[in-house]
Design a protein around this nucleic acid. Structure first.
Length: 645
DNA sequence: TCACGGAATATTTTT
DNA sequence: TATTCCGTGA
């Protein structure tokens, strides 16, 4: 083949399997890409190649796991070729669904003004129904809102009836089965009444629209002639269905994934989608990327040992041509704080050898596992970025402010009305419901509030709220100006309820900064639901760049997917914590934990440390754990050296 | 009907 | 270890 005519020297930049994946534009292709095998690189070059071939960027669709991943790839492709690549459509399944459903709403009889509700919102909706329907008083131990939301979501994402989910995972709730099913019906109904779509609905509605409207399907298939899906091992049945429906007669579909890195089964992902792909698209070409460009051999050796303990997998062994490298170590610490101090010591040492903090990460199973370390780092005056776990957007004060804005976009948003009304002194659930009903019956959007008579205790507070809406109603404010007015109204309430309000006020100011990038309130709200800032506070996501690239990363393993660092510490490598005690009963759960350990381990390029604090007493279970994680226990010294501190 | 305080209770990961 | 639930007093 004549590669000369291309601007980019693909055959120089890629190995032969990668090159195959880049060039094979037509027909279905499955790429099995091991950790660190240049998967992102391959996709990036493929986008560039397609565009360079003369394919219109707008007919290429790149679906990824986070929007950031898509943006990053398209930016890189643009740098390789030219900025035509920025015009490629890219995003998550959810954002794609949102886009299609809104844009084509009219032609499929859909309400284009729907609001997307996030997990806490859907929980509060469930909670309201739970109370309204009297389950709280009738049964002592009817499942809580969180559990209910999890059950409903699992049923949707795994395409299972509620009964099945309950028998499998929540058998102790079997006596409430009827109630739970009734509640789910009511939840669905209420969402429909309010034009709410939760995350799952986005996917379900898109699939339904594609199934029922062949004209929509044809139009999309004609538009997106080349489709690529990243992280295919973490897609669920609905997403696989969507892909099937979306792919046009030319069947130019490429999916990329690694079954060993599937870590989202808890949310319905099914890594068997990878295995089933060739059956779904006959004639699929399979390409394997097994050469690892990330890690030194000792790290790969250990990673291979770890994943070898998995029961079900495509066999694949990573190799590298990188030479040298240190054997990973397992550090046995006496307790949690000595674990933290060990890391701080190593950080200082690494700094002396010229490894900057941004090349280092500490990874953990669950968000709260890093608390002690965070305290220790703060004490030492060392800064860090924390990714995953707790979400900035989910803190109460941010949700409060957003609730006011959401009403402007969707005036009968019950969740938000309740939320903001309950903030006013002397308004409780009862009064909130009364006021909400009155507003709705007025039939004049959020303006319905203007004619509400403020009763006794809360008249003054309600008047302030009316004035806020009056002000916004009467002026054509920009998104930021709306935010400023809401803030002006909200700050006194904030001060009244939180004594740490200065910190929270800073967060709110950041929200204003983010708002300033938007011209439409709806798109701001959609983005906040779909792709909320991932790092907690600390301004890192606002100031783009400088300050934070010198910082250490603390991250959940889930949020570390796809990333890499020079040195990686995996903390709490303790049996009972990792794997966590809850997942030790079922083999499939245990398998997922194992893959999680594999993902964590393959993030490291040069140095890999597992740290295991001994003799930890868990007050909840009353057990004390004292063995290193079973995933790395019993591995010979030549692959994993032991250090005791 | 609201606010507040004590008791029970569930505890991971995220679009 | 928080959060969420529930009963009590105003």
């Amino acid at each position: 083949m004549d590669e000369k005519k291309y601007k980019i020297q693909y055959d120089q930049a890629l190995n032969s399997s990668q090159l195959d994946a880049v060039i094979m534009a037509d027909g279905p292709v499955l790429v099995i890409a091991g950790a660190g095998s240049g998967k992102t690189r391959t996709l990036t070059y493929r986008v560039a190649r397609l565009v360079e071939e003369g394919i219109s960027p707008s007919s290429i669709l790149l679906l990824t796991f986070t929007r950031k991943a898509a943006e990053e790839m398209l930016k890189r492709a643009s740098r390789l070729l030219d900025n035509r690549c920025e015009k490629v459509s890219g995003g998550t399944f959810h954002s794609f669904a949102n886009m299609v459903l809104r844009r084509k709403a009219d032609s499929i009889g859909f309400d284009r003004g729907f609001s997307i509700i996030d997990r806490p919102d859907s929980e509060s909706l469930i909670s309201m129904l739970r109370k309204e329907m009297g389950f709280v008083s009738k049964y002592r131990s009817f499942p809580r809102k969180q559990t209910l939301a999890t059950i409903f979501s699992k049923a949707v994402n795994k395409v299972l009836p509620i009964e099945e989910v309950i028998f499998n995972d929540y058998s102790h709730f079997t006596p409430f089965l009827d109630g739970i099913m009734e509640l789910q019906q009511a939840y669905g109904k209420r969402k429909a009444e309010h034009s709410f779509l939760d995350f799952d609905d986005l996917l379900v509605c898109l699939r339904l629209a594609l199934r029922e409207h062949s004209d929509l399907r044809d139009r999309l298939a004609r538009q997106y002639r080349y489709i690529m899906v990243d992280e295919y091992q973490d897609t669920n049945q609905i997403q696989a269905d969507i892909i099937y429906l979306l792919v046009g007669p030319e069947k130019n579909i490429m999916v990329v994934g690694d079954d060993s890195q599937s870590i989202y089964a808890f949310r319905g992902a099914n890594f068997k989608n990878i295995i089933n792909f060739p059956a779904m698209f006959p004639g699929t070409q399979i390409i394997r990327l097994e050469e690892n460009y990330r890690s030194v051999q000792p790290i790969l050796d250990l990673a291979n040992i770890i994943i070898d303990r998995a029961e079900e997998k495509y066999t694949k062994t990573l190799f590298t041509s990188k030479s040298g490298g240190l054997v990973p170590s397992l550090i046995t610490a006496t307790d949690e704080n000595s674990q933290s101090r060990f890391i701080v010591d190593r950080l200082l040492e690494l700094e002396e050898t010229g490894i900057s903090q941004n090349q280092i990460a500490v990874l953990f199973r669950a968000g709260f596992h890093s608390f002690d370390l965070e305290i220790e780092l703060n004490r030492m005056g060392m800064s860090f970025v924390k990714v995953g776990g707790f979400k900035f957007i989910e803190s109460a004060h941010i949700k409060d402010v957003l609730a006011h804005l959401r009403i402007l976009a969707n005036p009968y948003d019950r969740i938000s009305w309740y939320r903001i009304l309950l903030l006013i002194e002397n308004i409780g659930p009862r009064a909130a419901q009364q006021i909400y009903d009155d507003i709705v019956s007025n039939q004049s959007g959020y303006g319905g509030i203007f004619s509400i008579a403020g009763k006794k205790g809360y008249a003054a507070g309600l008047d302030r709220l009316k004035m806020l809406f009056r002000e916004i109603h009467d002026h054509p404010f920009s998104v930021t100006e709306m935010g400023e007015h809401v803030l002006e109204y909200y700050v006194p309430l904030l001060k009244a309820s939180y004594d740490d309000y200065p910190k929270r006020l800073k967060d709110l100011e950041q929200v204003l900064v983010i708002m300033s990038r938007y011209t439409r309130l709806e798109s701001f709200l959609t983005d906040m639901a779909l792709e909320p800032p991932n790092t907690s506070f600390d301004d890192s996501f606002v100031q783009s760049g400088e300050a934070d690239n010198q910082r250490l990363t603390l991250s959940t393993i889930h949020s570390a997917k796809g990333l890499e660092w020079h040195t990686v510490f995996i903390i709490w490598a303790l049996d009972g914590r990792f794997p966590s005690i809850q997942s030790m009963e079922k083999t499939e759960d245990l398998e997922e934990e194992l893959r999680l350990m594999y993902v964590a381990s393959t993030r490291a390029k040069e140095n890999l440390y597992y740290i295991c604090p001994m003799a930890v007493y868990d007050r909840h279970t009353g057990l004390s754990f004292s063995r290193p994680s079973r995933f790395i226990d019993g591995i010979p010294e030549e692959y994993l050296q032991r250090i005791y501190i």
